[in-house]
C-alpha cells in the first residue's frame, strides 16, 4: 500500500511538472476503468474520453496546488471524480434517473467538483474573451502570459523596435482582455 502511494506521489509530481511520461502512465493505469464505468452507465466511448480528460484536468489542478496531499490512491480519486462528473452529465441531459452503477470504492469529491466547475467556468470565459480581442493582441498576450517569454524576445518576434514599445502594447491588450473578461461576468 505504501509503495502504491509512493508511486502515486511520483506520478502526481510528474503531472504537476507537465511530464508527458507521467500523464501517459496515469492514462494507462486508469482509463480502462473509467471506460467501463461510463459504458456501463449509458455512455459512449467518446463520453468516456471526455470525462476522463476532465478528471485529468482536475487532478492536474490539484497536483499543482501546494497544499494538496493525496489521501487515497490516484485510482480511487480519479474514479470518484469521474463518477461524480458523469452523474452530473447525466443529470444535465436529464435522460435517466440518476443512479450510476459502480463497482469501485469512492471518496468524497464534492469540493473538488465545485472548485473544478469554477475553474472550468473561468476557463471558458477567458477563452471566449481571448477569442474576441483579435490579433496581434492574442498572440502577444499568449507569448507573455502563457508561454512566459521575455519582453525582449517578444519585441524581436513581433517586430517592435524595442521591448518598451512591446510592453506598452501588451498592457493595452491586457486592458482590453480584462474588459472583455469582466463584461461577461456582468452579463452573466
Amino acid at each position: 500500500m505504501v509503495n502504491i502511494l509512493e508511486q502515486d506521489q511520483e506520478l502526481l509530481k510528474g503531472l504537476a511538472d507537465n511530464n508527458k511520461k507521467s500523464v501517459e502512465e496515469i492514462y494507462r493505469l486508469n482509463y480502462s476503468m473509467i471506460r467501463t464505468l461510463v459504458l456501463n452507465n449509458n455512455g459512449s466511448i467518446d463520453d468516456a474520453r471526455d470525462i476522463f480528460q476532465e478528471a485529468m484536468v482536475v487532478l492536474y489542478e490539484k497536483s499543482k496546488a501546494p497544499t494538496f496531499a493525496l489521501t487515497c490512491q490516484i485510482k480511487t480519486y480519479v474514479y470518484s471524480i469521474c463518477k461524480r462528473l458523469w452523474l452530473k452529465r447525466l443529470q444535465q441531459l436529464s435522460k435517466f434517473s440518476t443512479q450510476v452503477e459502480s463497482l469501485e470504492e469512492t471518496v468524497s469529491v464534492e469540493e473538488e467538483i465545485e472548485e473544478h466547475e469554477k475553474v472550468n467556468n473561468n476557463f471558458i470565459l477567458m477563452e471566449h474573451a481571448m477569442s474576441k480581442i483579435g490579433e496581434p493582441c492574442k498572440s502577444l498576450l499568449d507569448a507573455y502570459y502563457l508561454q512566459k517569454k521575455s519582453m525582449v524576445a517578444i519585441a524581436g518576434e513581433f517586430g517592435y523596435t524595442n521591448a518598451d514599445n512591446a510592453k506598452t502594447q501588451k498592457y493595452k491588450c491586457l486592458v482590453r482582455l480584462k474588459k472583455l473578461f469582466f463584461a461577461q461576468y456582468k452579463n452573466a
Partner: peptide, 11 residues
C-alpha cells in the same frame, strides 16, 4: 485566471 487558463490550456 489568466495563468490558470494558460496552464490548463497547455495541459
Amino acid at each position: 485566471g489568466l495563468n490558470q487558463y494558460g496552464s490548463i490550456k497547455s495541459f
